[in-house]
Amino acid sequence: MDNGTSFISVRSVVKEYRVGDSTVRALDGMDMEIDEGDMVALMGPSGAGKTTLLNMIGGLDSPDRGSVIVKGMEISSLNEGQRALFRKNNVGFIFQFFNLIPSLTALENVLVPVMFDRDPPFDRAVELLERVGLSGRMDHVPGRLSGGERQRVAIARALINDPMIVLADEPTGNIDSVTAREIVSLFRELNDEGKTMIMATHDRLVSARARSVIKMRDGHVVRGKAKSRERIVHLADRKASGGIRRKVEG
């Protein structure tokens, strides 16, 4: 089902939350288009609706009004079961507070999204952890890992299903600047391999290396930077060579 829309299309989305007796409008008629293979930094003050927007695109939450269309599929109209399947197959989430399961080792955490699969891809989990530089830490529980290491585990976990979209909510918000720089380089690398990256961030380090920056305020876009021509050519070349996933699958 292709409606001739962008890869990700957010149309007139309104989302309100009830906080006590009052209602907070997190997204106020939000309109946005994101192309496949883009690396977008969503910027804006706290309360601008960045996280809510990520949750909508990732199928974690549904809008009160408007629609969210990903790859021609209107995810805002899916039921919870279908949305869970959509998340599992298409989206990798990375959070500010890592959100690892404390009782599991790094390797087990990476395998969590696929634990109900008939044959969980154990080797792929090992490869992903090696790729993020944690080959010696696979059997450590999160309590014995540093902030940066935990975020790397979370990145490996987000990639276990080889998603086309990676959503990161303040990915560098809880780690030191040196590690943040490494994490952003890793994001850039993933983007080069074809992943569409969308990051909600306050961090200039992240936005500086993004391909597009969308500024938000009070639940709508105030300014969006157009993607560079160079980027589109780059994506076309890569698709022609067919080498998008080579590195991850090693």
Partner: peptide, 19 residues
């Protein structure tokens, strides 16, 4: 609750978390 939210975000269905 938080852990359940994480599992659901990672794509596990309500049925799977119940399991």
């Amino acid at each position: 609750r938080r852990e359940i939210g994480i599992l659901r975000a990672l794509g596990l269905s309500t049925k799977e978390v119940m399991k």
